[in-house]
């Protein structure tokens, strides 16, 4: 598959603060790439550099195989951007806003009217189209922000934390919408610090910290880095110390932690571990309320690689 974006050795500093540090990566045609990282890790800065909104000290950026520049209008017409901050005109209606931003790219009136309707449908704002931004709730405003960025059906879409402050219901709608855009043939770069979103949405993930790539790959590839196979959590109101010691000896168990009536067990390898665990609990007549098993999360990957949590 072709590379839609090629970033090589991108470096950008704000005074002495290196926001992006020798970053190189590529985005393939038709994929959804997640840029994941904690606050201040350089996600927005990377995006703004790629879009030629910021000057950078070093590096090379190619989009659709061509050098990106502030006046590369042929490239810009094929890009759609949804910025982290809502950018809409307060004086224009929902429809008027989408129509305006779409009009920056699409001259043809009939075509634009169709595109605006499509965008309204995609973000579910059909019923609000004659309202003004001030009349919209925070979540609806975010959806309008997205519609404004993607109405012209761009081939390449950048979304910078589009779901911040959006309730879970709306967030799912938005994520579904983005998947639809990809199905229609768009390539997506999705920036977030919500690992759940990345897991649901992205084909490939780049994890950033302090402006550097600390890991990249598919969800499964990344999770392998966490060196955790499975995490089991059991609620046991009171567990005798001698029985706690026994958990260590169960097959495949590598870490045991008991605190406040919650027992956490980490497996680094093996399959069907939960069944062994249940048997042990039954044999030893240990009473428990709840038990569940999880696959490792990207947070575990981040923790493994940096020694800190992704979210503070």
């Amino acid at each position: 598959m072709k590379n839609v974006i090629d970033v090589k050795h991108l470096t950008k500093s704000y005074k002495s603060n290196k926001a992006v540090d020798d970053l190189s990566f590529a985005v393939k045609e038709g994929e959804i790439l997640g840029l994941l990282g904690p606050n201040g890790s350089g996600k927005s800065t990377t995006m703004n550099c790629i879009l030629s909104l910021l000057k950078f000290e070093a590096g090379e950026i190619k989009i659709f195989g061509k050098e990106m520049a502030p006046d590369a209008y042929d490239i810009k017409t094929k890009i759609g951007v949804v910025f982290q901050d809502v950018a809409v005109f307060d004086e224009l209606t929902v429809y008027g806003n989408i129509d305006y931003f779409c009009g920056l790219y699409i001259e043809d009136k009939a075509m634009r009217a169709q595109y605006v309707e499509d965008a309204l449908k995609l973000v579910g704002l059909e019923e609000n189209k004659s309202q003004y931004p001030k009349q919209l709730s925070g979540g609806l405003l975010r959806r309008l922000n997205i519609a404004c960025g993607i109405a012209h059906k761009p081939k390449l879409i950048f979304l910078d934390e589009p779901t911040v402050a959006v309730d879970p219901q709306s967030r799912n709608n938005i994520l579904e919408g983005i998947k639809k855009l990809r199905e229609d043939g768009a390539t997506v770069v999705y920036t977030t610090h919500y690992m759940e979103e990345v897991e649901i949405l992205c084909d490939r993930v780049i994890i950033l910290d302090h402006g550097k790539i600390i890991a990249s790959g598919t969800n499964d590839e990344l999770k392998a880095l966490a060196k955790i196979e499975e995490k089991v959590t059991i609620e046991i109101p009171d567990l005798a110390p001698e029985k706690l010691a026994g958990f260590d000896k169960i097959k495949n168990v590598s870490e045991v932690e008991y605190d406040n009536g919650i027992l956490k067990i980490v497996y680094r390898k093996g399959k069907n571990n939960l069944i062994d665990m249940m048997e042990y609990l039954k044999e030893n007549k240990i009473h428990y309320n709840k038990i569940f098993s999880e696959r490792p999360t990207l947070n575990d990957v981040f923790l493994e690689l940096t020694g800190k949590e992704l979210r503070d």
């Binding site: 879009l51 909104l53 502030p70 006046d71 209008y73 810009k76 017409t77 890009i79 951007v81 910025f83 901050d85 809502v86 950018a87 809409v88 005109f89 307060d90 004086e91 931003f101 920056l104 790219y105 404004c148 960025g149």
Partner: peptide, 18 residues
């Protein structure tokens, strides 16, 4: 002031228009 707002300006800058 609407057009000069930083957020709108950024979006206009990435738009396909000079």
């Amino acid at each position: 002031t609407s057009f000069n707002r930083q957020t709108i300006k950024k979006r206009n800058l990435v738009g396909g228009i000079d």
